[in-house]
Amino acid sequence: MALKDITLGQYFPGHSPVHRLDPRTKLLAVVLYIVALFLAQWFVSYAVMFLVLAGSIAISGVPVKSILRGMKPVVFIVVFTALLNLFYSGGDTVLVRFWIFTITLEGVFRAFFMVVRILMLISGTFLLTYTTSPILLTDGLESLLSPLKKLHAPIHELSMIMSIALRFIPTLIEETDKIMSAQRARGADFESGNLIQRAKALLPLLVPLFISAFRRAEELATAMECRCYHGGEGRTRLRQLKYRGADWFTLALFLAVTVGVGVLGHFGL
């Protein structure tokens, strides 16, 4: 598998209604969704959350397979959390008892809901990054955080740094792939040997990679200066973020769901 095929949270281009939502809407909706997940208590509220998630995924057209693939790296954490909850929850309805472990009915439910919560949390955030390009995401963040500019927080600069970093991740991965192949063609071996040998074997990869990263940074800085870039003050945008009907509708929907789930949770449902 090439380095490139690691798709953790990678953007899937598309034109679904979810893709076309304003990034700020999606960011706020995800925040509301996460809050609601923590307010949910019992099957009824989780069922509501599941409907919201399943509906969003269906509308976005992102293949369920890709979302499931994204879960692979967290399987360990999920299993670990489940076991912890299963064995250490306490409760009165004892189901099984062996050696030092006791499994209670309460523990089973807790573990189950915990797993569901983590999985839904991850699917929800993945749906955000799958349907929103990194550039739009940082634009949205900048716009949401812009009130902090009044407090002299360098919001524009931070978001510029973030967009540039995001922009260059694929480029650097591609470059790493290429240099690795070139050195392999000269017999470099990145896979075998002990730790020290392996660290040493990375030198022919890291030196050219750093040199090219610095060269790129310098070229980019020159190019930005040539176009008179001088920070955020008075800068207009090519991509204007605009709120449309769908955005207000989505926000209202998620707000309603969060309040609704909060109420359900309050009654222990």
């Binding site: 290429k178 240099i179 070139a182 063609a185 017999g187 071996d189 022919p204 050219p208 090219s212």
Partner: peptide, 20 residues
């Protein structure tokens, strides 16, 4: 596979970026 890498030499596109 490893022997083949030595017997079949490959010079990449823009190979100057691999010097270290």
């Amino acid at each position: 596979t490893r022997q083949t890498r030595f017997r079949v030499g490959l010079v990449f596109q823009y190979p100057e970026y691999q010097l270290f």
